[in-house]
Structure formats: C-alpha cells, structure tokens
Nucleic acid binder design. Structure first.
Lengths: 135, 135
DNA sequence: GCTCAACCCTAAAGTCGCTTCAAGGTCAAC
DNA sequence: GTTGACCTTGAAGCGACTTTAGGGTTGAGC
C-alpha cells in the first residue's frame, strides 16, 4: 500500500496532480484508510503512469479520458486509438509550423538591430511601432 | 475620435482585449466621453498596435510591458531590447525542440500499430501502459 | 510521553491571456 | 419610437494544474 506521494513518485508526477486527476475523473476515487489517507497499489500506479505518459505526449485531459476508455475495452477495434494519435500528431505539427514562422520573424527582427545604439534608433522597436508588416 | 471597437479593428484585435490590456496596465486608462465610453486617437491606436504585434511575436504581457517602457525612453541604449528578443528566440527554439521530440515519439507510436486489430493488441496502448521508456 | 518534521486532508484561490456572460445604458438610422 | 448595434461593469469560464491556508496524522528520536 502506497501513500499518494509514493504513487506520485512512482509515476513521476506530484501528489497534487494525482488529486487533480482524481477530481476530474481520470482516476477512480482512491481507497481510503481510517485516517482518510488515499492508498494505492501497483495497478493504480500503472493507471496513473498511463495517464502521465499520455499527458507527456501532449494529449489533453479529454483525450486521455478517451484513451483510458479504449484501453478498458480490449476487444474493440483500435481504429479510434489510431485516430486520436493521428489528430495529436497533426496538432503538434501545426504548432511546430507556427512556432517556426515565429522564430523566423523574431530572427529577422534581431537582424534589424546591430546592437549598441539608443532605443530610438533601434530597428526592433521601430518594427514593432511601425504599421508596415515585418516583411 | 474612435470608439473601442474602431480602435480594436484598427489594431486587429477585439474590444474586450483592449479593455483587458487597459486593466492589466499595458495601456493607460482611455479618455472617456460623457456617456462613459472610451475614446481613442491615432497615437492610442499605434500603442495598441505595438502591444498587439509584440503579443503576436509571442512576448508575454510582462515582456510587452518592458518593451513599452523601453520604447518610452528613446535615449537609453537598446541592449535591453536585444536581450528580451534573444530570450524570446531562445524560448521559442526550446519549445520547437520539445515539440519535435514529441512529434517523433508520437510517430514511433504510430508505427507500433499497423491498424485493424482489437485494442488489446494495439501497440499504441501497450506502449502507454508499459513501464518501458518508449526508446 | 513529547516534540518535530514530514507527511496527509480539504476547499479555495492563483496562474496566463484572454473570452464570454449577465444585466444594464447609449446611439443612430429608419 | 423602435430597432439593432454598440457601450459599460463585474464576474465567471477556459486548461491543467499549482499554491495557499488551515487543519489532522504519522513515525522517529529523546
């Protein structure tokens, strides 16, 4: 029997995160001792770890809920899992693309200032203040 | 004299965003008409557009505050501007790197499932449930 | 038996950057 | 004078937690 901190450590998250997952229904309410403490066993830790890994892969709480539901129905086809994963990949790729455009714009801005002049001659602030798009 | 919706349109954001920026101190309290309406002129719109452009570049509200303060002191050296920008570039690059690792892990997961079997044989869920790190 | 640190509990508020809502007042055209 | 599109405020909602406040429990050392 593990306390909440033990379980959290085993799944590499924090105790308050575990309480949060329970509150939002990702984890079933934990067994309680007479003192009111939550206690966990290996299966609980596995489930917590599953949640944690899915979260680390960027799945939303709602998607993790879906993944858990799917994992609990072993005989259904896994098409839905593939779909969730594909959506997640696309979403990550979209974010990367956006951030790359951002990075380019920022680097162009960096080249607009060769350092070492007063703010009123700074190409960076000029670009921010200017209504021209930052070609 | 522009109303808040006019000013927002001119700077390509929403009226409620303008109110929000005023509330958090990015914009000085607007002049008010006898009816209580906020009214804006070209200079206000410029400042709003400055804020909006900086936000689009991913700067936090706090960093935009710093940028505005710098823009308001035209005779100081622009080193601080360069520093803020460099930090922003690094932060974006860090996020891109993280997302790329995520993308790779997700794609490896995708290859673990060739589709079309029941959930209990799905390599994706197996990997999520498994305590092995996803090499 | 006492004390202390290190845990546990809950409910509520804070984070970030807005957006949305509720409930009202104003304005301009018809 | 009646629409409908604007304006005002304060408060709540979003996502995924984290932090805080205010309390109870445990276990080790003395």
């Amino acid at each position: 029997m593990l306390t909440i901190a033990d379980a959290a450590r085993a799944a590499a998250c924090s105790a308050s995160t575990v309480r949060y997952y329970e509150r939002v229904g990702l984890l079933a309410p934990a067994r309680r001792g007479d003192n009111g403490y939550r206690y966990y066993d290996a299966a609980d830790v596995e489930r917590l770890a599953f949640v944690n890994r899915a979260r680390e892969l960027g799945f939303s709480i709602a998607s993790v809920r879906d993944l858990l539901r799917l994992a609990d129905h072993p005989h259904e086809p896994c098409e839905a899992v593939d779909t969730l994963l594909a959506e997640q990949v696309r979403s990550i790729q979209g974010r990367i693309a956006q951030l790359r455009m951002l990075e380019e714009r920022l680097q162009r801005l960096q080249r607009a200032c060769n350092g070492d002049h007063p703010v009123n001659e700074c190409g960076i602030l000029a670009a921010l203040a200017d209504s021209q798009p930052p070609q």
